[in-house]
Simulated scan of single mutants.
Amino acid sequence: MEWILLVLLGVVAAMFGSIVGLGGGIIIVPVLMLLGPQLTGGEISHATAVGTSLTMLIITALASTLSYAKKKLVDFKSGWLFFMTSGPAAMIGSALTSRFQGAAFSLSFGIFMLLMAGLLVARDYLKPINREWPIQRTIVDAKGQEHTYGYAIVPALAIGFAVGLISGLFGIGGGSLFVPLMVLLFRFPPHTATATSMFVIFLSSILGSGMHGWLGEINYWIVLALVPGAWIGGKLGAMIAGRMSGKGLLWLLRVTLLLLAAQLICDGLTKL
């Protein structure tokens, strides 16, 4: 029964995570921390939950990236640029995870999510920066629609570093920060931002999970149970996201972050 529940958890987390560009860790980490005894018969530390989640994100993000690539939504050139700093930063974040105590981790995770939710709520009142960036990109999706946006090297690398650090530290992929910044700062179309985010998450997760593995913070049995569901859920999520409007994606992300923030903050306060 535990294995069945873990497989289903992989499906739901990966499907939901790939829809909003988070990679599924936003569900995996809290569930493993809160329901560890029911799922595995023993407590799961936050560092192990993060390491396990980040390892699963490799599969989720790969499945999503392949599905998005078929729809020509992934900007690979921009993704490789972001990865130049997100990869090393993911390793740094992974090395720092175990230094947080249980309450401190839950509170910091919850506050971060609350800030990200606030950013997305404020998006209706904030307009994307109307600036001509030095690097202009144009992408034509599978429907033949053309989207133009742009960025500069230094801000892009800075965002990549932040995404990687959060990815390794919290095991959530970093898309909660990556997607809104891409949309607001660089005027990425929401679907392209989500798709490109999943590509960067895939690359960063490989390095971040490698660091967690070296530190012994991965439960490989749980990974084996989550992987089949993660592969299916990642592809299903990408299919569903392609049928949703950009506005629908952002509202789904807002509600998700608010609920998770409230849960983690309450959990952290009870552990103080």
Rank of each mutant, 00 (worst) to 15 (best):
M198K: 01
T148S: 04
M239H: 15
L250F: 12
H147G: 08
E146T: 10
P155C: 05
S176N: 13
T256K: 07
Y149V: 03
L257T: 11
V223T: 08
H212V: 01
K127I: 12
G210V: 05
V200I: 15
W221K: 08
G171H: 10
V163I: 11
A230R: 15
S167F: 03
L169Q: 09
G216K: 11
H212G: 10
I159F: 13
P228A: 02
V154N: 09
V223W: 06
L236W: 08
A162V: 15
T192V: 01
T148N: 10
T256L: 06
K143W: 11
V183A: 13
L181W: 06
S197I: 11
H191N: 01
A195K: 00
L253I: 00
L252R: 04
G210S: 14
I159Y: 00
G164Q: 15
G229I: 01
N130A: 10
F186C: 04
R243Y: 01
V140K: 07
P134G: 09
V255I: 15
D141V: 02
G234I: 10
L257I: 14
L250Y: 10
A193M: 09
G234E: 00
G168Q: 04
S197R: 05
P128A: 01
P189M: 05
P228L: 12
A241C: 05
Y220T: 13
Y151V: 00
E146F: 02
S209A: 03
G233H: 01
G234C: 06
V223P: 07
L236C: 06
P180S: 08
F199K: 01
S205R: 13
W221V: 07
A261K: 08
M211F: 08
A225D: 03
M239T: 08
D141F: 03
A156M: 03
I218S: 07
A158Y: 02
A142S: 14
L165W: 06
A162N: 02
L184A: 13
R254S: 14
V183K: 01
Y151F: 11
S205A: 14
Y149H: 11
G237M: 11
I206K: 15
L184C: 00
L260Y: 03
E146V: 13
P180M: 08
A238W: 00
